[in-house]
Simulated scan of single mutants.
Amino acid sequence: MARIEVRVPESTKKEWTEYVDDHSGLASLSTLVRLSVASYVREEDVEMGVEEQLISDFSELESQIQELERQTHKVRAGQLDQEDLVDGLSSLLDSYFEPVYKADSDDMFTVASDLPGGDW
């Protein structure tokens, strides 16, 4: 097994040693350091996954906005009537927000069509 030496101020070593002494699940200061590093690495991996998902979501939203701009341009040019634009916009928004509606099936979110008095 490889050995790594870490230099820290005496006060930090004392703080870490006291933590190990107060937590019976930690066999030694080395155990605390190994577990802490492993936890940090796992946490960073999760953060990278979240970042990648945000980038993907942003790209999807960006393409949907571009599609909306194309349809808006067609309306202005008289190539698409207002009803087609509304249908297209609804479709784009539904596909983007669909995960929100499905996020919690225990009525965490209310779908507009379920509101009383509305024929959405």
Rank of each mutant, 00 (worst) to 15 (best):
R42A: 14
L89Y: 08
E98M: 12
G78I: 03
L92S: 03
I4V: 15
I65F: 10
V46G: 02
Y101G: 14
Q53N: 06
V6R: 01
S28I: 06
K14N: 00
G49E: 13
V46L: 14
D45T: 06
G117N: 14
E52K: 09
E47H: 05
F97V: 12
K13W: 02
T72I: 02
E67V: 10
Y96Q: 04
V8I: 15
S105D: 14
L26A: 02
E83I: 14
V50N: 08
W16S: 00
E44N: 10
K102Q: 11
Y40T: 06
S28T: 15
A2L: 14
L32R: 01
Q66W: 05
V111Y: 09
W120V: 10
L54R: 12
G25S: 07
H73T: 11
S11K: 06
E43Y: 14
V100R: 00
L54W: 11
E51Y: 15
L54E: 15
S24Q: 10
D114L: 08
E52Y: 13
P116Y: 13
T12E: 13
V46Y: 05
V100Y: 00
D22T: 01
V6S: 08
V6L: 13
R42W: 04
I65H: 11
E10D: 08
Q66K: 13
D107H: 15
Q79K: 08
W16Y: 10
W16G: 00
R3E: 10
D119M: 12
E47D: 09
A112D: 03
D45S: 05
E69H: 11
V75S: 02
V37E: 07
Q64L: 05
V37I: 15
V33Y: 03
L80A: 07
L26Q: 00
K13H: 09
S39W: 07
A77N: 05
L54C: 09
Q53D: 03
E10M: 02
T31N: 05
S90D: 06
D84M: 15
D94V: 11
L93A: 06
S63F: 05
A103G: 12
L85N: 00
Y19W: 04
S56L: 13
Q53E: 09
V86M: 09
E51R: 15
K14E: 06
Q53M: 15
V75A: 02
A112Q: 11
M48C: 12
A38K: 13
D84N: 12
Q79P: 01
E60A: 12
Q82C: 06
E5W: 04
G117T: 05
E43V: 07
D84T: 10
D22G: 07
K74W: 10
Q53R: 15
G25M: 04
V50R: 07
E43K: 09
H23W: 04
M108S: 05
S91F: 05
D87Y: 12
V111F: 04
M108D: 08
E10V: 02
E15K: 00
K14I: 01
L92A: 04
L93Q: 11
E62G: 01
L68F: 14
Y40E: 09
M1I: 14
E62N: 03
L80N: 01
K13R: 12
M108R: 05
S113K: 10
T110P: 00
D106C: 07
A2N: 13
E52D: 15
K102S: 07
R76N: 06
E98H: 11
I65R: 05
D81A: 08
